[in-house]
Design a protein around this nucleic acid. Sequence first.
RNA 1: GCCGAUGUAGCUCAAGGGUAGAGCAGCGGUCUUGUAAACCGCAGGUUGUGGGUUCGAUUCCCACCGUCGGCUCCA
Length: 641
Amino acid sequence: MNNEIILKLPDGTELSFAAGITGAEIAASIGAGLARAALAVVVNGKKLDISAPIFEGGDFRILTFDDDEGKHIFWHSTSHIMAEAVLRLFPGTKVAIGPAIEQGFYYDFDRAEPFTAGDLEAIETEMARIVKEDAVFQRCELPRDEALSRFEAAGEIYKVELAGEIPLGETVSLYTSGTFTDLCRGPHVPSASIIKAFKLLSVAGAYWRGSEKNKMLQRIYGISFPKKSQLDDFLEKLEQAKARDHRKLGKELDLFSINDDIGPGLVLWHPNGAIIREIIETYWRRRHREEGYLPVYTPLVGRSKLWETSGHLGFYNDNMFPSMSFEEGEQYFVRPMNCPFHIAIYKNKLRSYRDLPIRYCELGADYRYERSGVLHGLLRVRGFTMDDAHIFCRPDQMIDEVVGVYEFSLNILRSFGFKDFGIYLSTRPEHFVGDEDRWANATEALVAALQKVGLPFKTDVGGGAFYGPKIDIKVRDALGREWQTTTVQFDFNEPERFGLNYIGENGEKTQPYMVHRALLGSLERFFACLVEHYAGNFPMWLAPLQAKVIPVSEKFQAYAEIVHKRLLKAGLRSEIDNRPETMGYRIREAETAKVPYMLIVGEREEASGSASLRSHSDGDLGSMPIEKIIDRLNSESQPPA
RNA sequence: GCCGAUGUAGCUCAAGGGUAGAGCAGCGGUCUUGUAAACCGCAGGUUGUGGGUUCGAUUCCCACCGUCGGCUCCA
């Protein structure tokens, strides 16, 4: 073996070292700061502990907390420390898995008694002790069998199960820090003392291996940082995020409510929310018309036979509200989806290949019986309105249609101010309908569309619907949780079940391809995302109330009335506040209601035909002529192209 | 559905085995105001629902319902 290795740093510089040098030594040779921050290294794409000797030259990176990978290592190591603390305080607890997640880490435990808030504090205290002891993370490699018997001896049944799945004869790695040993690929931080600041955030139930058939374990979530100030920032941001929660803002801005007497997951849109919804719907309809969609309106209920044909009674029954029946015994179901109705319109007459593609769109209300534990404000409800469309096309039109829908979707989401999307391709699940060739074709079309647009996407293997593959776009809520809005789904099921066809060029009946798609997802969910995205500070085109006219005193009410009427006439959503309250009070109320503009009028303004403009975002803008204010507000109120 | 937490006035919250209190909002009045809260007064609650323990429950226990954080599932 060559005893010199050459390592290439990310900036391109190449350094030569004696083989067997460790990441820690290299970091130290580069700088003391880096040496302190170094968590692990990456050699030719392989992550290694900082203490591991390196024998191989090539690409080399040092991971710190500034890298996502570094954060993960840091958090994962913290989860080990938490597990050790739990085992020290609660002997007999079994450990399951403890990975890093997007924001922090968790560890799953099996223990008869629930962990209380007080237990979490005790665990934190114990963790602090472990950090102070500065336990070193030590890797050791063992034959799989040896590891397995070690966990068996310790009674760690979950680790035994995991180790048992590793092929016989393979080597596994274990990490020991302090008194805790875990089956783990690593790498880890060098020692516990680097974890300066941490907090345990919550306990929740979680099924072993994510299956509800398995035992429910207790999952403790936590977060950690190299510096106390970073933890404080994180907790501060968490607090701020709560202020943006659509449920809180929904109440404060009087947008919507959910009433227990009516039923969980059933939404009441108050005027302020309804105005915004109406604007969204109007914009949506215009854009769809421009994109060649045809509007349809269809009923909310349908006979049971319809749902038998569509397959919903077989595949989707658990999510449907129970049937309604007439005396004669005929059963009807409230619809959970709109597709069978759009299909019925398609089938209403014979279609030619020349007619395709046909794109039917509808803001269609649907009701789904969601399990009680999953309801979540407007983000997950039982009654909602899908911005639905079904595209019937020829096989040769498929790719263009998908590209079209995908671009349309991104464009419309961007119009509403969203920029940061999670894009997912979901492929064939275990149980599926349709032949494999069609699946391959359709998946190819989706990939082609994704590649054409060029945004990065993740593949959710096996995540497709039983009837076809799909592209999903997700946006984040205030707490960083992703919620699916756009979905573009192929359907091999329904064209078959409903016997859809068109007359092809050759005069033969041919089955069309069918795409279901929702861009905003549902108006309820999308609205929730929108509220959180803007933190309730809606842009002018969406704001339920755009301007509030506030006379300085009651002497100027008549002039305020004139100004208010001019705003209304110019098409602006204006209100006047001439209550006998102090001006400061009325301004404050308009501010907390997040009204974009206030027009304050007094003696000076009346004399000059002007108003003093105050913006919610920028405060007092000074007096200006009414025409100028109207021009400004109107130009800001234009919906996106 | 499952695990845990939780439910007090319209809202935000306090108290607590002897039938509940504040601020804001509301209502009535006074004030007539120059860029984020004028002042005084009044009214407002079978403490989520139903059981149980108790001389007495809003407080303790049980069940149910809702909500919150997760898991599973999903627009």
